[in-house]
Amino acid sequence: MRVIEYRVDGGEVIRLLTDLFDHDAYPARELAVLYHERWEVESAYRQIKTFQRGRQEVLRSTDPQLVRQEVWAHLVVHHCLTGIIMQLADSNGIDPDRISFVKVLKHTRRSVVRQLADTPPKIRRFLTALAAKVRRKLDSGTRRLREADRFLKRPNSLYSYRPKGKPKAPPRRVPARTITLQAAIVQ
């Protein structure tokens, strides 16, 4: 183990244990500065799990391949939002940590919803103009079948479910058991 001792602003001594032994490749000052940035990975996990995904089931998919796809989608969206934060920080000359992930996420969601509200008329205008130019039927043929069905996970309930109109089942009767202990004779 390599032990790096340092103080921040003359405060208490901090000891950093590491397995990075090469002093030239990993200078102590650089490791001490990076150690205080370690929390950023925890912030990224929180951003994805709590704010971006929202308070819902962990993942909706039931198939391992679809779970992988859903995780990648969350990571790609987080990467794009982080890119927006980096561009904002660079253009304003501030530290990216000073920009609120939640505010960027909410602004992005609002702008996407605003674009979606305007999309059907835009598509209609585009298709009308295209049809006038090309003068042919705009039929893309039959739709391909979905590759993967979507399943809705139901939360595990502590209570049984009984559809309306179905009579209650009689309570279960467990037969009484008799346990007999036999004394052992020790000689």
Rank of each mutant, 00 (worst) to 15 (best):
V3A: 12
V3T: 04
I4W: 04
I4C: 11
E5S: 06
Y6K: 01
R7S: 14
V8S: 08
D9P: 02
G10F: 11
E12N: 15
I14L: 15
L16H: 01
L16S: 02
L17T: 07
L20Y: 00
F21W: 14
H23C: 11
D24S: 05
Y26N: 03
P27F: 12
R29F: 06
R29D: 15
E30R: 07
E30V: 05
L34M: 07
L34R: 10
H36N: 09
W39E: 14
E40A: 09
E40M: 14
V41C: 12
S43Q: 15
A44K: 03
Q47F: 01
Q47H: 11
K49V: 07
K49E: 09
T50A: 08
T50V: 08
Q52C: 04
R55V: 03
R55A: 05
Q56C: 02
L59H: 00
S61Q: 03
P64D: 01
P64K: 00
Q65E: 04
V67K: 10
V67M: 13
E70T: 02
V71M: 11
W72H: 09
W72A: 13
W72T: 12
L75R: 00
L75Q: 02
C80Q: 14
C80Y: 12
L81T: 01
G83D: 06
I84V: 10
I85Q: 04
Q87W: 05
L88D: 02
A89G: 04
A89R: 00
S91F: 09
S91I: 05
S91C: 11
G93Y: 07
I94F: 04
I94N: 05
P96I: 03
P96M: 06
R98G: 02
R98Q: 09
S100D: 11
V102L: 12
V104Q: 00
V104M: 00
V104A: 01
L105F: 03
K106N: 14
H107K: 05
H107R: 10
T108P: 07
R110S: 13
S111P: 05
S111Q: 15
V113P: 00
R114Q: 09
R114E: 12
A117E: 13
P120C: 01
P120H: 01
P121F: 09
P121A: 08
I123L: 09
I123W: 08
R125W: 02
R125V: 04
F126L: 14
L127G: 13
L127K: 15
T128M: 11
A129D: 06
A129F: 11
A131E: 15
K133M: 13
V134E: 05
R135E: 07
D139H: 05
D139V: 04
T142S: 14
R143S: 15
R143N: 14
R143F: 11
L145D: 09
R146Y: 06
R146W: 06
R146S: 06
E147V: 09
A148S: 15
R150V: 06
L152K: 06
L152Y: 04
R154M: 04
R154G: 04
P155H: 07
S157V: 00
S157H: 01
S157C: 02
S157L: 03
Y161R: 04
R162Y: 00
G165I: 02
K166L: 07
P167T: 10
P167I: 11
A169L: 13
P170N: 15
R172W: 14
R173C: 08
P175S: 00
T178R: 11
I179T: 15
I179H: 13
I179K: 13
T180D: 08
Q182H: 09
A183E: 07
Q187H: 06
